[in-house]
Amino acid sequence: MKEEIIIAGFGGQGVLFMGRILAYGGIMQDQEVTWMPSYGPEMRGGTCNVSVILSDNKISSPILSRFDTAIILNQQSLDKFESRVKPGGVLIYDPNGITRHPERKDIKVCRIDAVDEATKLGNAKAYNMIVLGAYLKVKPVVSMENVVKGLRKSLPERHHHLMEMNEKAISVGMNAVEIL
């Protein structure tokens, strides 16, 4: 199994953290992983992305030009990465703030209204976990058990009381995702 993912959005949406949980989840199921963030001027200007690779075998290039899955959380990222999803791949996006929706017909497009769901939950910070849940529903590459382990490893201990809330947000995302 090899899954090459790009998660892209604004700084502050929890893009890097979401990638980290996936990567740690991969380690928990004994996979090879890489997590490569954008750290350049684009990050300083507001947009932010991370590519994550999970693989049963040794990973060569951590730099990717095409992806199995793109998780897209703003218009700039949709414009940049829609064309870079492999044919037959998956694009998951939050339509909040999107003016031009995905157009490709040769990939599976899914929407997750994560801003709305986070508002319903009354917790804007649960946003990225809702998106993560949506991804895991469409592509269950990491088991829920290992995601929870990855989450525990990624959260500093002083935030471990938030585990339950995060797990709940993941299941909200799983239920709310819509395959178009």
Binding site: E32, V33, M36, P62, I63
Partner: peptide
Amino acid sequence: DGIVGQMMEK
């Protein structure tokens, strides 16, 4: 380089 510095792996 910036890649191996910024990248996370196990």
